[in-house]
C-alpha cells in the first residue's frame, strides 16, 4: 500500500482541488483497487512557483501548478498559451495533451518528473470599467492588470498600459483604480470577486491567451511503483486527466459568465476588431513559436498539430 502526498497551494474549496484533484485521487484509488492512495495536503509547503521543484526534489510525490510561475523554464508551454486557440478549455486541454505527448515532450523540459497531465484554463478575455469596448482601438491606453509572461506582451501589443501584479492583488489594483481593466478568463473575474469592479467585457473568439497547468509526479516515486499500479494510474491520467481539468474550467467559466449577467455587458469582438487584434498579435505569436523552436521542437509544426487536434477534439 502506497500513499502519495500531493502538495497543494490552493484552498480546498477551489475547483481545481475540489473538482479535479479530489476526483483524480478517487480514481487512482479505484484504479489501483486501493493499493495507491493520494493524500492532498491542507496547507502549502511554499509559494506556487516552487511546486515543480517540490516534485523534482521529492518534497512531495505529486504537485500541480502553472508553468508560467517559473519563467524561462518551460518554452513549449507557449504553444498552449497563444491567442485565438479555442473557446473550450476541454478541447484545448485534450489537444494540448496530445501535442505534448507527441511532440513537446521531446524538448526535455519535464525529463526529471513523470508528467500526469498538462492542460489549460478557459480563454482569457478583456474586461474594463467605464470604457466602450466596441471600437477598434478601444483598449488603447487602458491600464490593464497583467501577471507577466505572454499576457504582458499581449497587453502591450494591443495598446494597453500593463500594470503588473499577482492575481491575488487584482482586486486591490482594480478597486483602487491603479488598474482600470484586466485580462482574465470568465471564471477568474468571478473567483477574485471582480464583477462589481467591472462593467464591460470584450469576448474575442478563441480567446486572447490561455494559462497552462501541469500535474507531475516525483520520478523516483513513480519508478518505485509496481507495473500494474503504474498502468492503473496511467489509465486515469494523461488525456483523461487533461479532459477532466478542461471540463472543470469550462464549467466554472460558464458559471462565471452567468454571474456576470446584467452586471458586465459583454460584446463579441467584431470582424474588424478581430482582424486588427490578429495583425497586432502576429509578432507575439511569431516570437513565441521561435522560442519553442529553440528547444529543438518545431514550433510551427507543433502549433499546426495543436490546431488540428483542437478541431478534432471539438467534434468528438
Amino acid at each position: 500500500e502506497t500513499t502519495l502526498r500531493m502538495a497543494n497551494w490552493l484552498p480546498p474549496s477551489h475547483p481545481l482541488v475540489a473538482e479535479v484533484m479530489v476526483p483524480f485521487a478517487e480514481q487512482v484509488a479505484e484504479a489501483t483497487q486501493g493499493r495507491v492512495t493520494v493524500d492532498i495536503m491542507g496547507a502549502p509547503l511554499g509559494p506556487p512557483g516552487a511546486h515543480f521543484d517540490f516534485a523534482v526534489n521529492g518534497i512531495a510525490d505529486i504537485t500541480f501548478g502553472v508553468q508560467g510561475y517559473s519563467p524561462g523554464r518551460f518554452k513549449t508551454t507557449n504553444i498552449a498559451e497563444l491567442p485565438f486557440l479555442g473557446d473550450s478549455a476541454e478541447a484545448v486541454s485534450v489537444a494540448y495533451w496530445r501535442t505534448f505527448d507527441e511532440m513537446l515532450i521531446d524538448a526535455g523540459e519535464y525529463d526529471r518528473v513523470k508528467v500526469l497531465a498538462v492542460f489549460t484554463h478557459g480563454p482569457g478575455q478583456v474586461f474594463t470599467k467605464g470604457r466602450d469596448l466596441t471600437s477598434v482601438d478601444a483598449i488603447k491606453g487602458v491600464k490593464m492588470r497583467v501577471g507577466g509572461g505572454i499576457v504582458h506582451e499581449i497587453a502591450t501589443r494591443i495598446g494597453a498600459t500593463p500594470v503588473e501584479g499577482p492575481s491575488s492583488k487584482a482586486y486591490e489594483l482594480l478597486s483602487q483604480g491603479v488598474a482600470d481593466g484586466i485580462l482574465f478568463p470568465y471564471e477568474s473575474v468571478a473567483f477574485f470577486k471582480l464583477i462589481p469592479l467591472l462593467d464591460q467585457g470584450l469576448a474575442v473568439p478563441g480567446g486572447l491567451y490561455n494559462t497552462s497547468f501541469y500535474i507531475v509526479m516525483n520520478k523516483a516515486k513513480w519508478e518505485s511503483l509496481p507495473e500494474e499500479d503504474k498502468a492503473a494510474i496511467d489509465s486515469v491520467s494523461g488525456e483523461a486527466l487533461a479532459r477532466l481539468a478542461g471540463q472543470m474550467w469550462d464549467r466554472v467559466d460558464a458559471a462565471g459568465l452567468a454571474e456576470m449577467e446584467g452586471k458586465i455587458a459583454i460584446t463579441t469582438a467584431s470582424d474588424a476588431q478581430v482582424a486588427a487584434l490578429a495583425a497586432q498579435l502576429q509578432p507575439v505569436i511569431d516570437a513565441k513559436l521561435a522560442e519553442v523552436s529553440e528547444t529543438g521542437v518545431d514550433g510551427a509544426a507543433a502549433l499546426a498539430l495543436m490546431k488540428a487536434e483542437i478541431a478534432a477534439a471539438g467534434t468528438e
Binding site: 517559473s70 524561462g72 501577471g147 507577466g148
Partner: peptide
C-alpha cells in the same frame, strides 16, 4: 544547490528575463 538547480533550467524573471 538550489541555485544550481535554477541555473540548470535557466530560470529567469517574468518580464525582463533576467537570470535568477
Amino acid at each position: 544547490a538550489h541555485a544550481g538547480q535554477i541555473a540548470g533550467y535557466g530560470g529567469t524573471t517574468n518580464s525582463l528575463r533576467l537570470p535568477v
